[in-house]
Design a protein around this nucleic acid. Structure first.
Length: 457
DNA sequence: TCTGGGGTCCTAGGACCC
DNA sequence: TCTGGGGTCCTAGGACCC
C-alpha cells in the first residue's frame, strides 16, 4: 500500500488568483473573519516575512510602503473550489480520504504484476488538476502518511520534482529526512519541536534515531506513532468517521457585547448552525454547551471565560430544541459571570477607596455553541422527559423544510427569528448575526452565485 | 478602533463504588 | 497513634492538526 498526499498550494490565495489573475506574482494575504488576522499568504507574501496570524491592523505598520493585497476570506468560493479538486482526485483513485479543505490522501495499490510508474502518474494528476480547475497542487507519495507529507513538501519546494515527489527506497527516505527540519514533521507541534531542538534533535532523521521508549515517555503514544511512521511503518489510521463527535460553531464579535439580549442573538445563530450541521450528517445531539469569553487583548478590562453544558431530555436536531437549550446554557454562563462580579464587588467594598463602586458588566468578545453526545439519527425514540412526540415531529419537519428552502435559495433565506437582529436602518433589510460580520474586502462568489459570474468584455 | 475557527486524541487526577 | 486498595468513569487541560 502506498499513500499519495495531494495538497493545494496556498489554497485560499490560489482560489482568489484563479478568478483574479492580476494577483499573480504579487504579495497576497487572505484574512480571517472580521478581517482579523492573516490566515493565508502567497509565496511573495511569505518572502516579505509576513507571519501567519499577524493582526491585519499591524500589516501596514510592520510593512510600510509594500504593495500587499489583503482580501477578506470567501469560504463559499474556497469550499466550492475544493469540491471541484476533490472530484478530480476521486476519479484518479477509488479510495480517497479528504483530510481538510485543501488536502486529501489517496490510497494506492501496488501490484507486482502491473507495476505503475507512480512518479509519472502523480505528475500527470497534478497537471490535470491545474488545467481543469486552475488550482496548483503538490503531491507526495510514500509508504506512510507522515512520509507522504514530507514528500509533498519537497514537491512544493523544488520545481525539479514537477509537482510530485515519490519517496520509494530506504536510501531516499533517509536522505529526505536528513534535509527535513523536525519542526515541520506532521504531528510534531511547536511545544515538542522547541524541546527537541534544545536537545539537539534538529532534523527528522535525528528524531528517528532517538530510542522509541524515550519518545513515548515524553510525547505519549501519539509521538511514538509519528516516530514509527518516519521509520516507514504504517500506523496512523484515518478513521473514516462519517459523523463528528462534537460540532462547534463560534465567532469573535466585531464589537464587544455586554447585554444578555444582545448576546442571545448570535448564540441562537450559532445554535441554529450547529443544528443544521447535525441534520446534514444525519445525527442528533444529547448535550448543548455554550461558552463565552472576554477580549484577552483588553488587559485593562475584567477578564472572564465560562462554559456551561445542558443535557437535553432526549436527543434532538431541530433548530428550536437546540436554540432553547443554548439559551438555557447561556443563562447559566451569565449567572456564573454575575457571581464572579459580585464576589469582586464584595471585595471592593472592603477597600475604603473603592467603596460604593460597582464593577462593570463583562464585555464579551467571543462566544460559541458546541453540540455533543452525538448519535446517529434513527427512529424517534419517545421519552417521557421529552417534549410530546407530535410536537417533536413537527419541529423536525419544520427544520427539514427550512433546509430545503435554504438549499434552493441560498443560506439564510429562511431562519429562526431568534437569530435575527433588528432591521438595518439604512436598507430596512433584516440583519442577521452572520451578515453583521465584517468582510469588506471579500471577492465575489464567482462559482456559486449567478449574479457574480465572471464577465468577459 | 482593530488580534480566527473547528476539530481530534491522550493523560492525569478526582469522584465514586465496593 | 492508627487513617485500604483497586477499579471505572468522567472531565479538564494540553498537545496536535488545518
Amino acid at each position: 500500500m502506498l499513500y499519495a498526499l495531494v495538497d493545494c498550494d496556498n489554497c485560499y490565495v490560489s482560489c482568489e488568483r484563479v478568478f483574479n489573475p492580476g494577483l499573480e506574482g504579487k504579495a497576497v494575504v487572505v484574512l480571517s473573519n472580521n478581517d482579523g488576522c492573516v490566515v493565508a499568504r502567497s509565496p511573495e507574501a511569505k518572502a516579505l516575512g509576513i507571519p501567519e496570524g499577524l493582526p491585519f491592523f499591524q500589516l501596514a505598520e510592520r510593512f510600510p510602503g509594500q504593495e500587499i493585497h489583503a482580501l477578506s476570506s470567501n469560504y463559499t468560493l474556497y469550499g466550492d473550489m475544493s469540491r471541484r479538486v476533490m472530484s478530480i482526485l476521486r476519479d484518479a483513485a477509488p479510495d480517497i480520504y479528504v483530510y481538510s479543505i485543501d488536502e486529501a490522501f489517496l490510497m494506492l495499490d501496488e501490484s507486482p504484476y502491473m507495476p505503475v510508474d507512480y512518479k509519472a502518474w502523480g505528475e500527470a494528476l497534478a497537471a490535470k488538476v491545474r488545467r481543469w480547475t486552475g488550482m496548483p497542487v503538490s503531491i507526495g507519495i510514500a509508504r506512510t502518511k507522515t512520509l507522504a507529507k514530507v514528500a509533498s513538501k519537497f514537491a512544493k519546494r523544488y520545481p525539479g520534482y514537477r509537482k510530485c515527489c515519490f519517496i520509494q527506497t530506504d536510501e531516499q527516505r533517509e536522505k529526505a529526512l536528513s534535509l527535513f527540519p523536525v519542526a515541520d514533521v506532521w504531528g510534531i507541534g511547536r511545544r515538542h519541536a522547541a524541546r527537541l531542538m534544545a536537545a539537539g534533535v534538529k532534523t527528522a532523521l535525528d528524531f528517528t534515531r532517538l530510542p522509541a521508549a524515550s519518545v513515548q515517555k515524553s510525547m505519549t503514544i501519539t509521538g511514538l506513532r509519528t516516530w514509527m511512521e518516519l521509520h516507514a511503518r504504517d500506523c496512523i489510521a484515518l478513521d473514516h468517521l462519517p459523523r463528528k463527535q462534537t460540532i462547534c460553531t463560534s465567532r469573535s464579535f466585531p464589537r464587544m457585547i455586554a447585554t444578555p439580549e444582545a448576546l442571545a442573538v448570535p448564540v441562537a445563530s450559532f445554535a441554529a448552525r450547529c443544528a443544521q450541521k447535525l441534520r446534514q450528517q444525519k445525527s442528533m445531539a444529547q448535550t448543548v454547551t455554550v461558552f463565552m469569553s472576554t477580549n484577552p487583548f483588553r488587559e485593562e478590562l475584567d477578564q472572564f471565560s465560562v462554559g456551561r453544558t445542558i443535557s437535553l431530555p432526549a436527543p434532538a436536531q431541530s433548530d428550536s430544541e437546540i436554540i432553547r437549550a443554548a439559551h438555557e446554557a447561556m443563562a447559566d454562563c451569565l449567572k456564573a459571570a454575575r457571581r464572579r462580579l459580585s464576589l469582586d464587588y464584595a471585595e471592593l467594598q472592603n477597600e475604603p477607596q473603592t467603596m460604593g463602586l460597582r464593577p462593570a458588566d463583562h464585555q464579551w468578545k467571543r462566544a460559541g455553541v458546541i453540540v455533543g453526545g452525538i448519535l446517529p439519527e434513527t427512529e424517534l425514540q419517545t421519552s417521557f422527559l421529552d417534549i410530546p412526540p407530535v410536537l417533536k415531529q413537527k419541529l423536525q419537519r419544520l427544520s427539514a423544510v427550512a433546509d430545503r428552502i435554504n438549499a434552493r435559495l441560498g443560506d439564510e433565506s429562511i431562519q429562526v427569528a431568534a437569530a435575527l437582529r433588528t432591521a438595518d436602518p439604512a436598507t430596512g433589510k433584516a440583519l442577521t448575526f452572520r451578515n453583521s460580520i465584517l468582510h469588506d474586502r471579500r471577492s465575489p462568489f464567482y462559482t456559486t452565485d449567478i449574479r457574480d459570474i465572471i464577465g468577459v468584455e
